[in-house]
Amino acid sequence: MSDKKYKHQTGSKVVSYNKWGVIFLIPFMVVWLIFQFIPLVTTIYNSFFENYRSGLSQIGPNFIGLQNYVTIITNGDLINYSKNTMIMWIIGFIPQIFFSLLLAAWFTDPSLRLKGQRFFKTVIYLPNLIMASAFSMLFFTLFADSGPINSILVNMGVISQPFKFMSNVTAVRCLVGFMNFIMWFGNTTILLMAGMMGIDQSLFEAAEVDGATATEVFWKITLPILRPILIYVLITSLIGGLQMFDVPQILTNGTGDPTRTSMTLIMYLNKHLYSKNFGMGGALSVFLFIITGVLSLIVFRISYAGEVK
């Protein structure tokens, strides 16, 4: 603390310190209004207008009510790209939650006494910090027709011809899902570990005395107690999955090939933004806003509502 001598405040003077609370909130609020709130309102506003370029001529903006919403549903785009996004999310999420639960249970199991935990945790968390676009570019070069993976597989005699990963629907989707799995399972493991370490040890001791096996302990004690944190992981991962962009965008150069089967919702939004089709882009954004908004509320209810005292 400063050693300068300050004049003491007289006790009788009532100073309203609390106005500083409001002052300190100003930067957040102003920035949020300009960079989040006004954009949100503008997005919703745009969704009610016909507004795009056709060749060199600009169509609109003309008010067309809910027509953009009708179009985006009836032409099948929204359903198709939602389906792609969900398929790739699930391909990544199933191994992610499976291995995260397994690893978290092992790391926190005192009877196992695993050595090198620091090392393993450091390694499995590493891919989470890697630039997704660079990681995806790396996979694109590694799994290219003449890339190292094909060269290794051919040399080992697994296949006789290079496998065209990028032209195979399942291969592309699985690559995207696999990258998401590798990038996120470490993060989930660490979250679940924190939950497991919070469980009262006496429960485990009691189970051991009663002769429960490690598997029984996991299914009958650990999992039920972890339910809230599992729901948190599931929903935040789903929100993240809906935002899936960098990995499939770079892997397929924005085309979502083969035949747009790996095109995600945000890639589709990105296409509209580049072609300046603000009406359709707006309608798509509002859909995404509603879905993520509902999911966010669930997360808020299960995890954060108790924080506000």
């Binding site: 300009i34 939004l269 509502a305």
Partner: peptide
């Protein structure tokens, strides 16, 4: 409460208005 509620909403859903603004 409000700040916690907007915590999970991704920037992508407002990006259209963001770039036009």
């Amino acid at each position: 409460t409000f700040i916690l509620m907007i915590m999970m909403i991704p920037t992508q859903v407002t990006v259209l208005g963001f770039i036009s603004f």
